[in-house]
Design a protein around this nucleic acid. Structure first.
Length: 438
DNA sequence: CGTGTTTGACCGGCGC
DNA sequence: GCGCCGGTCAAACACG
């Protein structure tokens, strides 16, 4: 049985529905999917959800103003539940993002998953003054009364793309007491606008190649040094390891996801080998370190539970898979594949779990079917958002962050059994549009 | 027996 | 320079 039963999972990025006639979810998906085919937003959200609330423009909050501009009504946020990540996890040393994602003007929410590089870890941001091109960098707090969250914009002239006068579209991550959030943060580079993103997409591989080249040189040097001296049994051997320092992995592409799960290591389609566990400062719950078991794949992840609420998992992925997902679990008695034979197991519950695998009463082969890959038809994350929230049992449809119109019927053929599909959707989108394999 | 997990020791970065 | 901290290694162990 899937460990996500009964868990309420939803994206933290949210927006409200139009207050007047809206397209059905099916229509919406069709419209949004048009953006997938060429990587551009053919139908901006403002076209899909035309502005219907004349008072929206008078809102004071930046997020609300932009929401009003784009035709969305942001739902009220419970400030006490909208804590910053570090505070939420009670671990100030944990590298976690703000529970806000920032979408430059002109982007639809679906674009965030097409160009994840635009979403930065706060530590990588230069926080500009709200006054364009003036004043020292600083955090910009939302002035919205019903938004207790901090907004961070990026007008860094070195990177930017955002015209300074343009307000970014702030999509507050709604950490709701009912809806368990999934937060995806992408640490990969500077914020840019859409056109820059296209160029960046072309340049990204070259940059990474150079970075890897540098890494390789460093590693080579270290190995040379170590080769000159004998090593004790417990002494670290650098051969085969890309680690130079404790924070080495910070240079790689990093994606941080928060989700609610009973499992300590929900399966995400790849196979992981646990290589360490450590209690980090500020969180009594140990952090588990995993490596991808694929040959020569250096992707790592670490998983820890929230300090305050153990229901929440913080999963941090470091690196990019440069291989396909395993098609099936190899048998311990069968021929050895490139992968190890194990699944990530939750030893607390003594069972193997597969994130993104809806419970099924059918055959085991179906249970082992692969995750969608880049070869599968593109799926806009919005539909996962919608379908995920549509399954939330404790909220009336018209309160599901306003994502569904009360008159809308859920699309039966797209309704996902549990919110883990949101995770899958994130990964698919990252893989499909950015080559980021989680 | 093969594979993955556990766990104490070790390492480098960083702040003071 | 020292100590803290996060990250990693690898022998021992567990499991099927």
């Amino acid at each position: 049985m899937n460990g996500f039963d009964g868990n309420n999972i939803g994206m933290t990025t949210c927006w409200a529905p139009p207050s007047s006639p809206s397209p059905s979810p099916r229509t919406l998906l069709a419209m949004l999917n048009q953006a997938d085919n060429n990587g551009h937003v053919v139908n901006p959200i403002s076209e899909i959800f035309p502005q219907t609330n004349p008072q929206s423009e008078q809102r004071s909050g930046l997020g609300e103003r932009v929401a009003a501009r784009t035709g969305f009504n942001l739902p009220p946020l419970e400030i006490q539940n909208n804590r910053p990540f570090a505070a939420f996890f009670g671990n100030p040393s944990t590298t976690v993002p703000s529970p806000l994602v920032l979408i430059p003007t002109g982007f639809s929410p679906s674009a965030m998953l097409q160009f994840p590089n635009m979403f930065l870890h706060p530590s990588h941001m230069i926080l500009p003054s709200p006054v364009a091109n003036g004043g020292p960098p600083e955090a910009v707090k939302s002035s919205g009364v019903d938004h207790g969250t901090m907004m961070i914009s990026n007008n860094d002239p070195m990177h930017v793309g955002l015209p300074p006068q343009q307000d970014p579209v702030c999509i507050p991550s709604h950490v709701d007491s009912v809806d368990a959030p999934i937060v995806a943060s992408f640490e990969s580079g500077p914020a840019v606008n859409e056109t820059d993103l296209i160029n960046m997409e072309n340049e990204r591989e070259n940059e990474e190649d150079e970075e890897y080249k540098e890494d390789g040189d460093e590693e080579h040097n270290i190995v040379d040094e170590l080769d000159a001296e004998p090593s004790s049994p417990k002494r670290r051997k650098f051969g085969g390891s890309t680690m130079i320092g404790a924070t080495r992995s910070c240079k790689s592409q990093r994606v941080i996801i928060q989700m609610e799960s009973d499992e300590n290591n929900p399966d995400d389609g790849y196979r992981w080998r646990k290589y360490g566990q450590k209690v980090v400062k500020g969180n009594p719950n140990p952090r588990s370190y995993y490596k991808c078991t694929f040959t020569e794949c250096n992707v790592k992840k670490h998983v820890e539970r929230g300090a305050e609420d153990v229901k929440f998992l913080l999963i941090t992925y470091d690196g990019i898979h440069e291989h396909a997902q395993p098609t099936a679990r190899s048998s311990t008695s069968g021929p050895k594949s490139q992968y190890g034979s194990s699944m990530s197991q939750d030893h607390n519950n003594n069972r193997t779990v597969r994130l993104g695998m809806p419970p099924s009463s059918s055959s085991a082969s179906q249970a082992m079917r692969r995750f969608p890959s880049s070869l599968d038809p593109p799926m806009d994350m919005t539909q996962f958002y919608i379908t995920g929230l549509a399954k939330l049992p404790s909220l009336p449809v018209n309160q599901n962050h306003g994502l569904m119109n009360p008159n809308d019927e859920p699309t039966i053929d797209r309704v996902i059994p549990d919110g883990t599909e949101v995770f899958k959707g994130i990964r698919d989108r990252l893989n499909l549009n950015f080559g980021l394999n989680l």
